[in-house]
Amino acid sequence: MLLFDNLYGRLRQHPLRGAAAVGQPAVVASQGRPVVAVDEKQSDDLPPSVDFVSIDHRKSIRVAVDHLAGLGHQCISYIADGQSTTYSRRSKSEGFLEAAAANGLTQCHIVMPPEPSERPQFSGKELAELGRRAVATIMESYPETTAIVTFNDMTALGAVEALKDLQVSVLDRMSVVGIDGISVSELLTPSITSVRQPLEISAKEAVKCVAEQLGGRRIRKDIYVQPELIVRRSSGRRQ
């Protein structure tokens, strides 16, 4: 069993019995092998033989918005990226709108700054730059914003640095919440409130699904791993 992004070449080289795949699960399924799609799918209609394991991305964004709404924030901006065709990022954007509506928030905005490159995956520096660009847009177009949610923690880092440059106090004037739970979030000043996404649990569930299929299970499974809010110093009650 292998976990990898590009399956075509590997299928020719390895006698796989099953795979947990990010990106092209149908390729392995078409070879008659057990397969699990991990955190990504092109549509809601996966082949019946393909299990699906993912972080609950809608829940991740809902946890962040609920946290901020509970602190009294009415005007929240969500920094998304332009890769809205991916399942995880599309789910976060949709989840943000759902969470805003559920909390009765009518002054919420999705901000998608110009992307630093055409690659589907960005470096940490590029993700931080997205946050910096988005803050400039928010302060110019949505100055009533009192809280920001970002699609990952590196973007939150860039947002915090941009707010510092603009002399906008993080916590007193603007709260910031990231999504990922990477360790660097707790080392910053201020430390960043984040919604932790336990990828290690996703990996274990994916391996378990492959083993179950190899053992004869034929009923398809969808598993959504639950996120966890970690409150730090970048989010507080609306002033």
Rank of each mutant, 00 (worst) to 15 (best):
A102V: 03
D66F: 05
L68T: 06
T86Q: 11
S93Q: 15
T106H: 12
C75L: 00
A100T: 12
Y87N: 10
G95P: 09
D56K: 04
D66M: 08
I61Q: 09
A69G: 13
E94Q: 14
F96N: 10
L68P: 07
A69Q: 08
V65G: 08
N103D: 02
D66A: 13
M112Y: 00
I61D: 10
L105H: 03
S93E: 15
H67G: 05
D81E: 10
H57I: 00
I76D: 05
G95F: 03
R90T: 04
S60Q: 06
I79A: 09
A101Q: 13
A69D: 07
S77H: 06
E94W: 06
Q83C: 04
G104A: 04
D56V: 03
I79F: 07
S60K: 03
C108K: 03
M112I: 15
T106D: 12
S60P: 05
H73R: 09
K59I: 00
Y87I: 03
K59V: 03
A69S: 14
S84W: 05
Y87M: 11
E98M: 10
S88W: 00
V63N: 04
A99Q: 08
G82M: 04
C108A: 09
S84R: 12
T85W: 13
Q107P: 00
Q107H: 13
R89K: 14
S60V: 05
I110Q: 10
H109A: 12
L68N: 07
N103M: 02
R62K: 12
S77G: 11
C75I: 00
A101V: 05
P113R: 05
G70A: 09
S93I: 12
T86I: 04
E94M: 11
G104P: 06
H109R: 14
G95V: 04
D66Q: 13
L71N: 07
A99Y: 03
G95K: 08
Q74P: 01
E94A: 11
C108D: 01
R58I: 10
R62E: 14
A64S: 11
N103V: 01
L97G: 01
R62Q: 14
G104W: 04
L68K: 09
R90A: 14
I110H: 05
V65F: 04
A99W: 04
L68R: 05
I79G: 10
Y78R: 07
I79K: 10
T86G: 08
V63L: 15
S77Q: 07
L68D: 08
N103T: 02
G70R: 07
G82Q: 13
T85G: 09
I110M: 08
R62G: 15
D66G: 09
S91G: 03
Y87T: 04
G72H: 01
D66W: 02
M112H: 02
T86M: 13
K92V: 01
M112E: 14
H109V: 11
R58M: 09
